[in-house]
Each structure stands twice: as C-alpha cells, then as structure tokens.
Design a protein around this nucleic acid. Sequence first.
DNA 1: GGCAATGTGTTATGTAATAACATAATTGCT
DNA 2: AGCAATTATGTTATTACATAACACATTGCC
Lengths: 164, 164
Amino acid sequence: MSMSHACDHDHDHAHHLDSGRIAARLSEAQRLCEAQGERMTAPRLRTLELILGENAPVKAYDVIDRFHPDGAAKPPTVYRALAFLEQMGLIHRIESLNAFVACQGHADGQVVQPHAAAFLLCDCCGSSEEVAVSLPEIDQQAAASGFETRRVTLEARGLCKACR
Amino acid sequence: MSMSHACDHDHDHAHHLDSGRIAARLSEAQRLCEAQGERMTAPRLRTLELILGENAPVKAYDVIDRFHPDGAAKPPTVYRALAFLEQMGLIHRIESLNAFVACQGHADGQVVQPHAAAFLLCDCCGSSEEVAVSLPEIDQQAAASGFETRRVTLEARGLCKACR
DNA sequence: GGCAATGTGTTATGTAATAACATAATTGCT
DNA sequence: AGCAATTATGTTATTACATAACACATTGCC
Ligand SMILES: [Zn+2]
Ligand SMILES: [Zn+2]
Ligand SMILES: [Zn+2]
Ligand SMILES: [Zn+2]
C-alpha cells in the first residue's frame, strides 16, 4: 500500500482522494475520451480509478494485484490500459520510479492534451506534485546541437515540505 | 550490439572511442578514485571500459554478457560496479532507457564531482549527448512548495542532427 | 598475526514489461 | 439485419531488469 519509511513522522499528509472526487475525475476522463473519438473501456476506467486512488505514483503491479476484488489481472491488460491513459494525457509515467501517477493538470475540468510535465517526488512519503515548467535552456542546447526534441522527462527527487 | 532501427540511413556517426582514448579515460578514472580514497578494482574498471566503448547508453545486461571473453558475469558483480561508478560521477544512469552512459564531463582531465546532467537521447541511433543546464524554474517551483531537491533527472528524447 | 572494513563470488529470487496469438466487441457500410 | 474491417481484450509464455542473502577474499591498520 504505502511505501515503507525509516523516518519518525507519519505520512497522513499523503491523503487519498475521496470516492466522490474520484467518480468526478472518472466521468470527466470519459467525456475527454469521447470528445476525441476514443473509447474509455472498463479495464481502462478501472486502471485509472486505482491510480486516482493514490496521490502518489502507483506501480503497474500494484494495479495488477488490486484490479479484481478476488484476484489479480493479467499484466498485458493493465500495461495496455496504462499506455492508453498516458497517450490521452490522463496519467504520466514516472521513469525514475517505474510508476504511474494521475495527471494533475485536469483538476478544474479543463481539457489538457498530452503534455510534458515536471514532478517533485518525495523519497520519504512517496508523494508526487506535478508542476508546469518551460525549459528554455535545454531547448537552446538541443537547438545548438541540431537535436529535435520529442518529449522530455523531468523529475526532481527529494523531500516534500511535510517530510523534511 | 547497436540498437535496431527502421530508418534508411546508417548510423556511422555513432562512432566508438578508439582503444587508446579508452585507456586514457580509464587511467584518469583510476587517478580520480585514488584521489578520493576509493578503490578502482578490476570489475569496476572492466565495467567502465565496456561503457566507454560505446557513445550510447549501455544496458546492464549488455555489460554482463560481454564482461568475460568466454562467458557472462553474474548480475550483482556488474550492478555493484555500476552503483560505484555512478557514485563517483564516472557514469550516469539514464532512467528512461534503463541504461548507463559514461560521463562526458571529464573529457579534458578535469575532476568533476557527482553532478546532475541533462541528456539528449536519439531514438533512432541511440546516441547520447550530455549537456549542462541550470534549472531555475524547477528550483523556484520546488522552493515555492517547500520541497528540498536532492537530485534531478532530465532527459530529452528525440532525433539527433544526423538522424532527423 | 589479528582484526575490522570493504569488496567479490554465488545462488536464488523478486520485480517490471512484452511477444504472440486467439477471441470478442465495436464501427461503418450495404 | 448482415458483413467485413478495425479495435480492444483474454491468455499463455517469455524476456528484461534488479536485488537479497550469505560465504569468501582482500585490504589496511594495530
Ligand atoms: Zn499532467
Ligand atoms: Zn514526503
Ligand atoms: Zn556527467
Ligand atoms: Zn541519431
């Protein structure tokens, strides 16, 4: 469930979304898919539901294990759903954790196309904060090298306010 | 050996270091370790040698497979060496590729402590370019959130000049 | 030499992700 | 409705990536 930790403080600040808020995000996601002619199917919805349930990045195999009330899902079911949700911009993959987190750019109902994002990842409580940043320096370096950037991974690891 | 590709051009621009240049980098690495009271042992040297041999990120299991002339090394041997080399700032882990690349910040013999770096990673030929960037925006965002950053991963994926 | 600290060898296991192919649901067309 | 094409899912098996645990060896110091 939660990541183990050696610190002495608790991690209550890593609060979960309540079920009403999750339901709202799910139907919003469904609308977003339909608006783009994509299908929000049951396994995709279930996968998103499980990721929305945590405010921290979730491992693929945690989704797999919790997928059914009685038993685990098969890995391809979940990995395919994860790929779809990422393409739709509903979740982000966190490369340095091999995990997935719900996009926080849809918070107020606005449609956000797939986008680059930066993350502040707490090594103690596991919490994730998505922040919007522009990257003029790396763009400039890329341009100087004749490099065509397709996507950027930017992840800061450290300690959140509550854990420092 | 090299990564497979569907493009029609060749990847000769992904040239390797010649053996003399590798030897120079290895002895330089050895001096750097000794200067810090660390031991550059045989498996560590061999691991670094194999990584220096490519100008592209190398998979851990590629190192494992090539470690001995006759057979493969055991995974812990190589993973331990990789951890050491990374701590010494001699290699960097590329999170989005699960691979390792030699640090390019030691090129002219200057000692470079473990440092953050950004990478331009070509999805076609697999080449990697290490670039130095400062990150004022993410530092600012982190400060605003009370987040204490320990280390940053910044990887741009795309197409290098030769492959676009 | 005796000891502590560090590094390595070895076996086994744990964790993450995909290939390949069969079946099912959906969509668009007639 | 009937049909074909497309898209999605189910299923089995395999591949790729990484570490735990413990025994043994080496190094440096007293
Ligand atoms: Zn987002
Ligand atoms: Zn925290
Ligand atoms: Zn470097
Ligand atoms: Zn290239």
